[in-house]
Computed example of a mutant assay.
Amino acid sequence: MIIRVVIAGPRGKMGQEAVHTVMNDDNMELVAVLDHKDLAVNLAQYEQFPEQYDVPVYTELHTLFDAVKADVFVDLTTPLAGYEHTKTALFAGVRPVIGTTGFTDGQLEELTNLAKSSEIGCIIAPNFAIGAVLMMKFAQMAANYFPDIEIIEMHHDRKLDAPSGTAVKTAQLMAENRLSHKQGHPEEHENIPGARGADFEGMRIHSVRLPGLVAHQQVLFGGTGELLTVRHDSFDRKSFMTGVKLSIEKVMDLKELVYGLENIL
Rank of each mutant, 00 (worst) to 15 (best):
L210Q: 14
T21M: 12
L173Y: 11
G106W: 03
H181N: 10
T166R: 07
Y83N: 13
F65A: 10
D105T: 00
V251Q: 04
L39S: 04
Q45W: 04
K69N: 15
A125S: 14
E110M: 10
F49K: 03
E110N: 04
A8W: 06
S239F: 12
K13Q: 03
K87Q: 10
T63H: 06
K159M: 12
H189W: 10
P79W: 15
P126Y: 12
R178E: 00
N27E: 13
L39V: 14
G223S: 02
L246S: 08
G15F: 00
N24E: 05
D253H: 14
D75Q: 09
H36N: 05
G202M: 02
G197I: 00
A171H: 06
P96W: 12
I120K: 10
F65T: 11
A32I: 13
S247Y: 08
I124K: 10
A32M: 06
A171K: 02
V97E: 06
H232L: 02
A167M: 06
T59I: 07
E110D: 09
E119W: 09
F235C: 06
E17L: 10
S234R: 00
I120Q: 01
N27G: 12
D161W: 14
G12L: 13
K87H: 06
V31P: 02
L257P: 04
L61C: 06
V72D: 03
L213W: 07
V133H: 11
E109D: 15
G165C: 15
K87L: 11
V41C: 13
E153K: 05
N24F: 10
H20I: 08
